[in-house]
Nucleic acid binder design. Sequence first.
DNA 1: TATGAATGAGGCTTCATTCAT
DNA 2: TATGAATGAAGCCTCATTCAT
Lengths: 205, 205, 205, 205
Amino acid sequence: MTQKTKRHNDPALAEARRNQVLCAAADCFRRKGYHGAGMAEISKTAGMSAGHIYNYFASKEAIIESIVERDMEEMFSIFKEFADKPGDRVTVLLDGLDRGVERHTDLSQGALDLEMLAEAARNEKVANLLRESDSHARDSMRELLVGERGPLQGTALEEVNARIEVMFSVMGGLLLRKMLNPDLDINELLKALRPTMKTLLLPFE
Amino acid sequence: MTQKTKRHNDPALAEARRNQVLCAAADCFRRKGYHGAGMAEISKTAGMSAGHIYNYFASKEAIIESIVERDMEEMFSIFKEFADKPGDRVTVLLDGLDRGVERHTDLSQGALDLEMLAEAARNEKVANLLRESDSHARDSMRELLVGERGPLQGTALEEVNARIEVMFSVMGGLLLRKMLNPDLDINELLKALRPTMKTLLLPFE
Amino acid sequence: MTQKTKRHNDPALAEARRNQVLCAAADCFRRKGYHGAGMAEISKTAGMSAGHIYNYFASKEAIIESIVERDMEEMFSIFKEFADKPGDRVTVLLDGLDRGVERHTDLSQGALDLEMLAEAARNEKVANLLRESDSHARDSMRELLVGERGPLQGTALEEVNARIEVMFSVMGGLLLRKMLNPDLDINELLKALRPTMKTLLLPFE
Amino acid sequence: MTQKTKRHNDPALAEARRNQVLCAAADCFRRKGYHGAGMAEISKTAGMSAGHIYNYFASKEAIIESIVERDMEEMFSIFKEFADKPGDRVTVLLDGLDRGVERHTDLSQGALDLEMLAEAARNEKVANLLRESDSHARDSMRELLVGERGPLQGTALEEVNARIEVMFSVMGGLLLRKMLNPDLDINELLKALRPTMKTLLLPFE
DNA sequence: TATGAATGAGGCTTCATTCAT
DNA sequence: TATGAATGAAGCCTCATTCAT
């Protein structure tokens, strides 16, 4: 797995410490960016010495990679929830829109996402993790659309994929919107977003 | 201006040198990211000594700020083109979609945009420039939509603004899509994107 | 003694533990050098926690000092053997040559010796131990040469000392030879070494 | 070549700076050992900032490697001198003995040599350089012995090689002697060393 | 006695920036 | 105007050592 560090006798403690570091690092990266945040600051935020962090992570890079992995798992669980919800898929997805917008519109989370994306441009490992994550997400979404009770069951696969791309694009783009327009009114936005998504969720015409 | 540097005897030459640096830096940032590219590499790419760059830019930060400014101007001119085009606004905008997608889908340009956005999260000056640029862009778009020959002339301003946000969100999101899914098929994408945009450009229902 | 550490309730166990550490450390130093081997590795090799080692040794330096002491004792016993051997001294010494060459030609032992010598150049305590050890060795050798049955009984003391220096120099130099010329053929070497030693063991002319 | 560093416009200055660093580093290594001497100390000794050193050497390791290379060249020139001297080879070599002993008996040089040898035990590059150097030295010596005017022209090659090993061993061993016996009387030593060498330089019996 | 989590000083190296020329 | 040698602060990381348990 991703274990390249010392074995720990007390796995629970170790996991707790890893989390301490991960949270602290995420916090620092949000505020200063990956390159702007130093191990010194991270260690202070985590309430542990800089050296000790290296008992849990092989390097600063390994930290951001773990953050990415953690985010991936979070996203998996979100799609799982969708899949488990009963009722009409279109309704379920549209109902989930509010939460999705909120998530993609949270400035501090967005800053971290952006940081990871920017890092991906020059760190192949991070890029691959993100791509893998995205691929899973597209798979999940496709299953929702063309699987059982899916609204696009008869649609050509290429078209479904394209629709997913556009949907993901809107949502992903929200990361940027809030940053570029802090006055953004989320409620108003939803009024325009909902019809847009409906267009994408139902057969054209 | 953003001039914080010494006066130059030959303003034309100075401007040429500034451009040399800007292009070189943009190139390096694209390839290595803002933090990954060093002044040494930039200076080599620009064909001038590292020290000399400081006769034109106060700091490395000032360089990326100037790059942002340059990109802003580029965008202004694009919207100007739209405004100058005769004929139906919806048609004009939909016809421009291909070029827009291409622009936002170019990986190397996208890397630079991402770099600027990530930098914005921690550099207030960059953030303000980008926001100002975005504000202008929204103004221009609004004018296209509700101004003369605009398809949304009767629509409430809040709604128009919200539609713009969604439109910008899709386009901005494309930056991420190509990075997260390198196999992205742009032609297929356009087939789903066009109806989406049409939904946003015309009154609902 | 060199005891600077806490009193131990069970001296026998303590001694066993000290030996465990000494052997492990010698092993690590051979493989990685004094600076290359960390306390973590030593403790793992010794089968005991890093912290616990400090109950037996005040510091990493104290460990190498103890190793030197141990080696000294080994050498004393070797000279004792020579002294106890009956028969002609020259023959005895020449017969012991094979084993001496073997010992000084063993790469892993040589690495440790070199490590100690290099350490001596900057650790006065180590230097003194080694010098003391060498002094004893010279005394022993002198006794063999000018004492009862010694081949150089009539020779001036200064000359005897000088011969000893040269003999020790050849043997010590072997440490380097094997390292600098891994292809070194020990059997051939002995053919040239034996006449050399004979020259040094018998009156000149 | 060994160039992995920035190109320099003024090669003379660059060479001077490299030498500054090399001398300073050699000095520090002598006093504190390779691992004991930090870049900070080296840079202070060299009268230049730590960062600047990296314009001339890729790493601390590269520094010691260069020192080894420098020593190699020095040794080549010594053998060259021997080869160029007219007259009887045995006489020439025995006459050169004084200088050789002096060289191998210099404590500060010896400390550095020891440092390099110890480093060789764990740095393959250093080991290879030293071995290459030693191989050249043996070649040169062999040429002196069996070449034109050589005293061992008829002798079997294996035996010649073995004699060389023993000669080199004595000389190399002197490094250790001075360190282990600071009272060593060099003049007396020479009295015993000369007959020894003569034994090795002339056919046995 | 024994552990190993935790510390923190110090190591090597990078890089934006300055300045004499 | 232009250079690039030089600086030095700051970065990431290692490791001998300590201490609560």
